[in-house]
Design a protein around this nucleic acid. Structure first.
Length: 184
DNA sequence: AGCTTGATTGCCT
DNA sequence: GGCAATCAAGCTA
């Protein structure tokens, strides 16, 4: 189990700590292998220009789901960390309910089932109805999985500002990432 | 009220 | 690599 206080820490600390955590939604999911941190003093964050109706959940308490629509067609899942900070869950390694995920995604290539924020939400059946729900009870289930892991930091994907902020955290060598980090 | 843009994805060349 | 899909949030007026 993950305590609510897990999220009440600096947002980059939380993002890094989430790599290797098992996320289940209605019993389906797997191991988080990619996550990004966003902070209200960070120009790439939705909360950079202060509270709005959409970002109300991000300014609420830590440990809740912030879910928003992007490009009019995809959903993105975040975990709030308090005071306008949140972690975007970008990819996971499918473990439980792979058959259902294949049906929802319309593909059978397992490393593409949850390799991106929009794909992950489609595979796990996440939509705006779950926005604002707490993470410590159904439909969510978060738990630690023990292992020695190498975590790589890199610039966040799809942001046009703050490109030097290395707040993307990935499990080294995972085939389930949305993109392989640049090895410059 | 109108305009711009986006924490993306999938298909095309 | 390029680009269309598709629409609401947020901004300007």
């Amino acid at each position: 189990m993950i305590e609510p206080s897990f999220f009440g820490r600096p947002v980059d600390t939380v993002a890094r700590a989430l790599i290797g955590v098992q996320l289940l939604v209605d019993g389906l999911g797997g191991i988080i292998v990619e996550a990004e941190a966003y902070h209200p003093q960070d120009p790439a964050a939705h909360t950079f220009r202060g509270p709005t109706p959409r970002t109300a959940v991000m300014f609420g308490p830590a440990g809740y789901a912030y879910i928003y629509r992007i490009y009019g067609l995809h959903w993105c899942l975040n975990f709030t960390c308090g005071n306008g900070a949140a972690v975007l869950i970008r990819a996971l390694e499918p473990e439980v309910g792979i058959e259902v995920m294949r049906e929802r995604r319309g593909i059978t290539i397992d490393h593409l089932l949850c390799s991106g924020p929009g794909r992950l939400c489609q595979a796990l059946g996440i939509d705006g109805d779950m926005n604002g729900l707490p993470l410590d009870r159904m439909p969510f289930s978060l738990s630690h999985t023990p292992a020695n892991r190498v975590i790589v930091t890199s610039p966040r994907i799809g942001v046009s500002v703050a490109k030097d902020t290395l707040w993307r955290f990935t499990l080294d060598g995972s085939p389930y990432l949305s993109r392989t980090p640049k090895t410059k």
